[in-house]
Structures are given as structure tokens and as C-alpha cells.
Design a protein around this nucleic acid. Structure first.
Lengths: 194, 194
DNA sequence: TTTTAGATTGACTAATCACTCCACAAAGGT
DNA sequence: ACCTTTGTGGAGTGATTAGTCAATCTAAAA
């Protein structure tokens, strides 16, 4: 067991190093040699764990997306009202983003890169299943405006990102952060509730 | 006069080629040689007009930002109500984005690249002066929620981008587009009005 | 016509980078 | 003890690239 995780140590070291450097210098700005150096492994070792640089880029994206998704779904329980569920998901998305700035930034950096074209539409759709289900439910219960699901999803996602951008543009105290997030949810609800 | 513009022809050819290729293949994915080839000029000519590749990347960004800004400001006249002004700016931002998809995409691609760090904060601030003034005015007149200007600005910008994303994710007819944009403005107004 | 200044070219260079290769080490099963 | 599998290292390679430079062209001024 210990050896099992120790074997994967270097894989994780490379993963972490790549995230840090990609976010700081961009995909093109970080050579694989620098990633290996930052991870404390040899050049060749990187290619033992990741077939190509692009493979690493994509694995990073999928891992982060999955981590975010499972974090968010872990926070909502079924016996809440729909508004509460949406609120919990919204707030927790932001807290996760604030606690994992590199990872959250990476998602968007990836989104605006040619690598994103390599992600299949099914994967993309599957990665937002839980959000889609909630929106469907909300529309049926007439708690959300009767608009196309994809439309609402896009609007909510970009709102989350907007709030994140604002929260990271300046230094806020915890209580200021909390107020901004609450205001932002109020605005979101005003926007999507009928 | 004719020669004047003819001299700048190649500069513009390079500009256009760079935009097209950067959007398609990313900054790293497009070598300067390809840009020169696409523009129909020699390798060296590119560096006659733009000192470095990065210079070209940044000039492209600033030019596009200025174009977008002057387009939007050209559409609002002073003797409108504030809500109308906001609506006109919102709608025209989206129409411009839809008519200039490469340029609009480029702005965001640039935003999520390390090149963005090279833009001075003053320049960034100056590039959104007209939006800031409108929001200030709106808060004073109690037509907008009394929130920090930067917050409202960020929220509105990301809403615009969200709507743009939705509109370009599928093929919509003109009337469908118009409906989406109108709905989106209604939602925006619900969100930012007190 | 001659001069001059800028525009244009494309071969060239120095550097960089993704990735390979092969030798060796560690671990585990038999 | 022996073999097989898997991990690790790092020098090496071939391809690519941003940017240079000296030569040539163009056109208008003198």
C-alpha cells in the first residue's frame, strides 16, 4: 500500500509542478524540462508517466474538472429546497475556486486554448450533468425562468466566473468575501427566478 | 495619400493574418513564418512592422479593444434614459461580438494568456472608462444597486460573454438571436436594478 | 539623372524544445 | 538466486523557431 502510493508520488509531483508552471507561464511558456526540474525528476521520467506534453495538459484538465464536480456534489444533500440547493452549489463553487485558484484559473486557461478542441462533446456534457439536472428540475417546478437549459447553464457559469474575478481582483477580508458572495447570489436569483 | 495607405497594406495584411491564425492555432501554435506566409510577405517584413512576435500580439489586443470601445460609444447618444443607454450598449456589444467573432474571441484568449500581464493597469482602466462612467451615473440616480463599480462592471462583462458563448454554441436564426439578446437584457436588468 | 531613404526579401543562425533511447536500479514473484 | 516488470535517469537528436542581416528593389526628392 505504501509502495503503491510512493510509486505514484512522482506522477503527482509532476502533476503539481505542471499546474503551477502552466498557470504562471502558460502552456507554451513552460517547457517539459522545467516541469521535470520543478517536480524534482529527470526529463525522461515525465514521459514515463505522461505520453506527451499535451497528454499532461489534458489529464490536468480532466482531473481538475472531476475534482470540482465531486466537491460540489458532495456538498448538496437531496432533502433541501431547490433554491437552497442552487445556493449551496453556487457558494461552494466560489469557495472552492478561492481555495484552489490555480486549478480554477487552469480550467479557464484551458478553455481558451486550442487544447480544448481535443475534449469530446460527450465528455463536456457529462462534466455538467449534475448542474443540468438541477436546472431541469427548477424549470419544471417553475422556480426558474422557462428558458433553454443550456442558456441558463451558460449564464450561471459565467456569473460564477465574474464573481470569482472580482473576488480575486482585490484583497478582501473573509467577511467582505462573504458579503460579496451573498450579494452575488441574490443577483443571480433575481436574474433566473421567474 | 494612396501610397500612404499602400505602404500600410502589408502591415494590415500581417495584422489580419495574425488574428486569423492566433485564434485558430493559439499564440504558440502559430509561428511567425506562417503569419508571414498567410499575409503574402517575406519573413523579414513581419519584423519590419512589428519589433517582435509579442509586440504583434499586444498591438492586436489594443487595436481590437479600441475598435470595440469606439464602436460601442458611437452607438449611444446623450439624450437617452440611462436604462436605454445601458440596453443599447449591451445589445451592441453582442452584435459587434457576433459580427467580429475572431476579434471578440481574441480578446478573451489574450486575457487568459501570460501576455495580459504586459498590459499596464492604467491602460486596462482607461479601456473601460466609458462603462465605468455609465455605472457611476446609474448608481447616483438610484437606477442601479449601490454596489462597488468594479463589481458591477465585472458582473456585466461576464454576463455579456456568457450570452455570447450561448449564441455561438448553436446556430440561431436572426429572430432567435434577437429573442435571446432581449431575454438576456431583461435578466441583466433584473440583476442590477434595485 | 542621381541620390537617398525606406521597404522587402529570404537565407541564415543560435537557441530551444519535445521526445527518444538505453543503461541501470528496485521490487516482486517463483 | 533468477527472472520479469516497472521505474528512473540524463545525455542525445532532429526538428522547429524567433529574430538578424546584408543585399536588392522602389519611388520620390533634389
Amino acid at each position: 500500500m505504501i509502495s503503491q502510493s510512493k510509486i505514484q508520488d512522482k506522477r503527482k509531483e509532476i502533476w503539481d509542478a505542471a499546474l503551477k508552471l502552466f498557470v504562471e507561464y502558460g502552456f507554451h511558456g513552460t517547457p517539459t524540462s522545467k516541469i521535470a526540474a520543478e517536480a524534482g525528476v529527470a526529463n525522461g521520467t515525465l514521459f514515463h508517466y505522461y505520453k506527451t506534453k499535451e497528454d499532461l495538459v489534458i489529464v490536468l484538465y480532466n482531473d481538475i474538472k472531476n475534482e470540482l464536480n465531486s466537491y460540489i456534489t458532495s456538498k448538496v444533500s437531496c432533502n433541501e429546497s431547490l433554491e437552497t440547493k442552487v445556493k449551496i452549489m453556487f457558494i461552494n463553487s466560489l469557495y472552492w475556486a478561492l481555495d484552489n485558484r490555480e486549478k480554477f484559473y487552469y480550467i479557464h486557461q484551458f478553455h481558451f486554448s486550442p487544447h480544448f478542441a481535443k475534449i469530446s462533446p460527450e465528455t463536456i456534457h457529462q462534466q455538467s450533468t449534475c448542474h443540468i439536472r438541477l436546472i431541469e428540475e427548477g424549470i419544471k417546478a417553475e422556480l426558474l425562468k422557462p428558458l433553454p437549459i443550456e442558456f441558463l447553464l451558460t449564464i450561471v457559469s459565467s456569473h460564477v466566473f465574474g464573481v470569482y474575478q472580482y473576488l480575486t481582483s482585490e484583497d478582501f477580508s473573509e467577511s467582505q468575501q462573504k458579503k460579496v458572495i451573498n450579494d452575488a447570489f441574490g443577483m443571480l436569483w433575481d436574474m433566473i427566478a421567474p
